[in-house]
Design a protein around this nucleic acid. Structure first.
Lengths: 115, 115
DNA sequence: CTTTCATATGAATCTCTATTCATATGATAA
DNA sequence: TTATCATATGAATAGAGATTCATATGAAAG
């Protein structure tokens, strides 16, 4: 009611269809995981093969610590998982939605070429 | 070569398959757009119907200015577009990938219920 | 058991970004 | 033309998050 012209009907209708705040937050949080270049590179690397932490660090030319921190975030979100092998930790994709979601983004970018 | 154990072969292989830095950055930037609750709510609202700025502001109970700023970001990214109608600006979805991408995220959330 | 290697983690820093406030723009109505 | 409404926008602020540094943990080798 802050403005003069009326659209209360549209608002009521859209509100009815809108998912819960909690779900919308969760959705934002999910996509936030993909919204960082480092995490994107990590995920893309794991598309090809499972990798240990220092391999990813070398691959991306970044510090091991930075990679570990990001892997923790991805692991907490259950997008990746890891297993021990000797004293290395080998990470791999834990969810195939990752491929689908990133694939959709990829399509969007490669189709709409005019920018 | 910062570590002792060797995985240069894996690194070479993965590097070969990895998209360019530019594409990976663009992908990150794209998903960053979905990684914010306010933008997510705006996009979800536009799923249902085209809306003017102040309708979105009322709907989300946020300031008009905040909404305008976010709409600009979405518009620059060509995810939404707008048309003039009198003195109101009516925004609508400009790209159907938006629905697909968010839909995939939605599925991921609603399927994996254990958290 | 001590040393070394691979990884994890806490704290600090720095950057990025979302929101707010104030104001500008642009269109319509009077 | 002037007043009003709808939106846009620049600057400032505040908060979140990514990286680094130093260090802790944990496993294996000697």
């Amino acid at each position: 009611m802050a403005h003069k012209h009326d659209h209360s009907q549209a608002i009521i209708e859209v509100t009815r269809q809108l998912p819960s705040d909690e779900l919308l937050c969760d959705l934002g949080d999910l996509f936030k995981l993909f919204g960082d270049t480092t995490r994107m590179k990590i995920l893309y690397s794991l598309f090809e093969s499972e990798l240990c932490v220092c391999a990813i660090a070398e691959l991306l030319k970044m510090e091991q610590s930075a990679i570990s921190h990001q892997l923790k975030i991805l692991k907490d979100a259950k997008l990746v998982a890891c297993r021990r092998s000797g004293r290395t930790n080998i990470y791999f994709l834990a969810d195939d939605h990752v491929r689908t979601i990133i694939g959709q983004g990829y399509e969007h970018l490669t189709e709409g070429k005019e920018d």
